[in-house]
Amino acid sequence: MQRLGSTGDTFDDEGTFVLEHLPEPGAFLDGHDVLTDEDHTEFHATTWEIFEERGVYDMTFGYNLAKLNLDTRHPNAGFRYAEDADEEGVLRAEFTPTTEFCPAGNSLAIGAFRAWNGLPERHEYDLVRVRVAEMHNESASLNDDLRQLEQILEEDGEVPGPDALREGSA
């Protein structure tokens, strides 16, 4: 299995927390316990494994989406995480794409949602809520889709399939 690893100056070393190479936590994480240092890197290592298993890849860069957090060329992109202050067992994950017009923002965020919530035994959370950072030009509609997928998951107890939003069941 390919690991996060580093390749010269392009990527931070696996298991490091380099704050200046991560996006600022946005509104979705405000008021919640943002993971830093070891807490962030431990959950992110789990994320890498889950994304690898589930095939959550950024096709633009040709790598596991978790590697975006280590890509020094995009210091304001990637995931930030926070434990929900109001709901025990809930993690919030905010995805900041590389650009405000990232055409893959929706598929990457939904892929992350499905991967984390499809393998809950791999982490300590009952639910991982995912949102796209407000800097994305379509964040409002993308986040509506993610809320609908959460609702389906909570009602059915299963991660919604790829056609859930198209079928109008959301």
Rank of each mutant, 00 (worst) to 15 (best):
Cys102Met: 02
Val132Ile: 11
Asp144Arg: 08
Ala164Gln: 03
Leu119Glu: 08
Ala66Trp: 01
Pro25Cys: 11
Ala133Lys: 10
Gly78Lys: 01
Phe95Leu: 15
Arg73Val: 10
Leu119Gln: 09
Gly78Gln: 01
Ala82Met: 09
Ala66Asp: 00
Asn106His: 11
Glu52Arg: 09
Glu42Asn: 08
Met135Thr: 14
Val18Glu: 11
Thr16Leu: 11
Gly111Val: 13
Glu94Asp: 08
Ile50Arg: 00
Glu134Asp: 12
Ser107Val: 15
Thr99Met: 13
Gly26Thr: 02
Ala133Phe: 08
Pro25Arg: 12
Ala115Cys: 02
Gly168Pro: 02
Gly168Gln: 04
Arg54His: 13
Leu149Tyr: 05
Val90Lys: 06
Ala133Trp: 12
Pro25Ser: 11
Leu149Trp: 05
Asn64Gln: 07
Glu87Ile: 10
Gly62Met: 05
Val90Cys: 06
Trp116His: 00
Arg166Tyr: 07
Arg80Ser: 04
Glu53Trp: 09
Asp145Pro: 04
Glu134His: 04
Glu83Gln: 12
Arg73Leu: 11
His40Trp: 09
Arg131Glu: 15
Gly161Cys: 14
Arg166Asn: 04
Ala82Leu: 09
Val128Arg: 00
Glu138Trp: 08
Glu100Ser: 13
Asp163His: 09
Arg129Ile: 03
Gly105Glu: 02
Tyr63Lys: 10
Leu68Thr: 13
Phe113Gly: 01
Leu153Asn: 07
Val34Trp: 12
Asp71Gln: 04
Phe17Glu: 01
Thr36Gly: 06
Ser169Pro: 00
Thr98Lys: 09
Leu119Gly: 00
Phe79Gly: 14
Gln151Ser: 10
Ala112Gln: 07
Thr10Phe: 11
Gln151Pro: 00
Glu167Met: 10
Met1Tyr: 10
Val56Lys: 12
Ser107His: 13
Thr41Ser: 07
Val132Phe: 11
Leu153Pro: 06
Val132Tyr: 10
Leu119Cys: 03
Arg80Val: 06
Glu158Cys: 08
Glu52Gly: 06
Glu38Asp: 04
Tyr125Leu: 04
Val90Ala: 04
Arg54Leu: 14
Asn137Thr: 02
Ala93Thr: 02
Glu14Met: 15
Asp86Lys: 05
Ser6Cys: 05
Glu124Trp: 09
Asp156Arg: 12
Asn76Glu: 13
Ser107Asp: 15
Asp39His: 07
Asn76Gln: 14
Ala77His: 03
Glu87Thr: 12
Leu4Thr: 15
Asn76Thr: 15
Ala112Gly: 13
Leu22Lys: 03
Ala66Phe: 03
Gln2Ser: 07
Glu155Phe: 05
Leu22Asp: 06
Trp48Ile: 02
Tyr81Asp: 10
Asn143Asp: 11
Thr10Asp: 12
Glu38His: 03
Thr41Asp: 06
Leu65Met: 05
Glu53Ser: 11
Val128Asn: 03
Ala140Val: 13
Tyr57Asp: 12
Leu4Tyr: 15
His74Tyr: 14
Asp84Val: 00
Thr41Gly: 07
Phe11Cys: 03
Ala93Glu: 11
Thr98Pro: 01
Trp116Asn: 01
Asp33Arg: 15
Gly26Ile: 13
Arg129His: 04
Asn143Val: 10
Ala27Pro: 02
Asn76Lys: 14
Ser6Glu: 09
Gly78Ile: 01
Val128Ser: 03
Lys67Gly: 05
Gly105Tyr: 01
Thr99Gly: 01
Glu87Met: 06
Trp116Tyr: 14
Trp116Gln: 04
Gly78Glu: 01
Gly8Pro: 01
Phe61Val: 05
Ser169Trp: 03
Gln2Gly: 02
Ser6Gly: 03
Phe28Arg: 02
Gln2Asn: 01
Pro75Trp: 05
Gly15Ser: 08
